[in-house]
Amino acid sequence: MKKRSVLCLVLAAILALGLVGCGGGSSSAAAYPDQAIELVIPASAGGGSDIMARLLVQIIQDNDLCSQVITPVNKQGGGGSAGQAYVNSKSDPNYTIFTINDAHTIASNVSETRPEGGFTPICMLAKDEVLLVTKADSPYQTMDDAIAAIQANPMGLTVGCADQLDKICVFDINNSYGVEFNNVYFDSAGEIATAIMGDHVEFGIFNPSECASLVEGGELKALASFSTERCAAPLDDVPTFTELGHDDLVFAMSRGIMGPAGMSEEAQKYWSDIFEKVCATDAWTKDYVEANGLTPTFMNYEEYTTYYEENEKNLVEKIAVLGE
């Protein structure tokens, strides 16, 4: 008899625990979202995409913008394809969102992780300028120096690239100036910077956030930027390619948020609204966008859908020409 009552007590305890644990997942079709959401970051921890994504989550949490927990998940590899493949594999398209930039867009087409009909655009967050950078005390102090050097030594100077997008930039430079820079793949901007400072490669393609502190610290020097106007300090003394007479070299990486194929319009609008609020906060504009030399550009899901379609077509054409 005693044993049985002990048994019952323990059973009751387990059941109670189960109910408590149940609290996280609800079974009724409540308001969207009613589960935790995954924010997939198709890049390794510590890089530009990762910092931005985690900050977004932080701002959402600080301002109580979402009732559910958003869990950032890193899925690096293949220039973004690994993360996209992971997103494609998720069974419920409404509870995953992911960050995307132009490099990932290219990868999705090259590696065929782009699903039928494409991903679901949610919003654009910002534009990231692109710069050609070299070591601070290198013999190439201006773009002209660099061009002269590569003309004397075709394929003898190397530009470090962290993704296919960077390779397109080098390709464009080569076409516009009629020269032949060599390019080498690196896993991250940090590694390119290390390689430049160690004299293993001569140049690199960077976003402002990836090189600003090193430029300020006197280790690196930017030669030219792909932006329409000059970048913010400390890169404001860097000429744009347009100023140097090559206005075909205008480009900026866009960073946005997308959802998997098949995401509902309700979910799409929901996230577009949330991120619109995020982009209006001080924490975003002052502490992140300005601090990192980004150009704040918000596009909601309708505008972004149009932009993305055109941008993707443009990039795919260039990549096909590149023969990659």
């Binding site: 590899g77 293949g78 394809s81 990868a107 090259v110 590696s111 296919q164 990659e324």
Partner: peptide, 9 residues
């Protein structure tokens, strides 16, 4: 898996 340098499977 992915070959990072060339985005091949």
């Amino acid at each position: 898996g992915m070959d990072a340098s060339s985005a091949n499977f």
